[in-house]
Design a protein around this nucleic acid. Structure first.
Lengths: 179, 179
DNA sequence: TTGGGCATGTAAGATGTTACATGATTAT
DNA sequence: ATAATCATGTAACATCTTACATGCCCAA
């Protein structure tokens, strides 16, 4: 069984759940802003993927009126079906992480190594900046209670991301104190 | 500035902290068993990397006595220096995750969608199996208190991984109940 | 009307994955 | 002796990253 490609399904999900048709730029920005915590993508992946998905009949492409530059994409029946199938199928892989900070910590054997506090402080700074971004998203997107009901999945994973980041910062500070 | 390559530094770290010289197979297994939570690698990446690092003078290669098949690698002065420099430099990138389960949750808008419980149960099963593996590692590696002091970084990240996995399972169960 | 920014796109190289190949060791 | 397993390695392919290219749009 060939490995499932994820990016096209993400694109389907974004197109399907947006009110109007969307452009490649909008899709790229959306992934980076809203689900960058769980998947990463560059615009140079998105455009070829859109082309391919159009050829496969998962989506349709329309020129933007009064605009030669941009194109908008909508989902087809087939695309909707692919998306629904994908969402229905529980996945059997653990989340994968690439975490360079933790690797460095791992390879330092001595509890009192001078480099540990420096590494940890840098990481705390990074996480604080990221946390700020996440909290802004939550304030912007979920101002009223019904927003939560209308985008339940989004709400779930955003609150979860915030909790995990806070937790990680807390752990780092605590680890610092243990010196 | 070209992007830092991670794999060679992981290999340096493993060779440097092991008692004796190690083989490619041992390195691959070690990464998958001990730091698979934070980095992933296939053996088909390791062997070419070892060749390259040997050519660059970061490590040295010795045939295993009475064994035509296996080779052992040790670290050079240069390699040690590269490793120390890498460990000393705080990194400026957030940990990256690829988490398909969370993506699927994200794209389901309806709080009462029938597919959510199925997805969550499958994920809980996965995480439970993984947690078991992590707990076994902790029992095997850190039976006595001095083990903790001798491999402080390893201890830190293993306990942290266990805590995070438990936490995730707890959150999933709680989310299930909220239906 | 022209210059800068922007959305789209391409290209090249690096990295990661899967499958297969080879020969040595081990078990039967 | 033969078969199965294992460590090493290669090959083909997919994906990701970075840089560059193109031409439209808008504002000065």
């Amino acid at each position: 069984m060939p490995k499932q490609r994820i990016l096209p399904h993400i694109i389907l999900g974004i197109i399907a759940t947006s009110e109007a048709e969307v452009t490649g730029k909008q899709i790229t920005d959306y992934v980076q802003r809203e689900i960058g915590e769980y998947w990463q993508v560059a615009h140079s992946q998105v455009y070829p993927e859109l082309k391919r998905m159009t050829e496969d009949g998962w989506i349709v492409c329309h020129p933007v009126p009064n605009n030669e530059k941009e194109k908008q994409y909508g989902i087809t029946e087939l695309g909707l079906e692919m998306l629904e199938n994908w969402l229905s199928e529980p996945n059997h892989e653990l989340p994968l992480q690439k975490d360079i900070f933790t690797l460095k910590l791992f390879f330092i054997k001595d509890k009192d190594d001078q480099r540990i506090p420096k590494l940890i402080h840098a990481q705390i700074d990074l996480l604080n900046k990221h946390l700020e971004h996440l909290e802004q998203r939550k304030n912007n997107l979920f101002a009223s209670p019904e927003d939560m009901l209308n985008r339940y999945g989004h709400y779930l994973i955003l609150t979860r991301a915030i909790a995990r980041n806070r937790d990680q910062i807390k752990w780092l500070k605590q680890t610092l104190k243990m010196k």
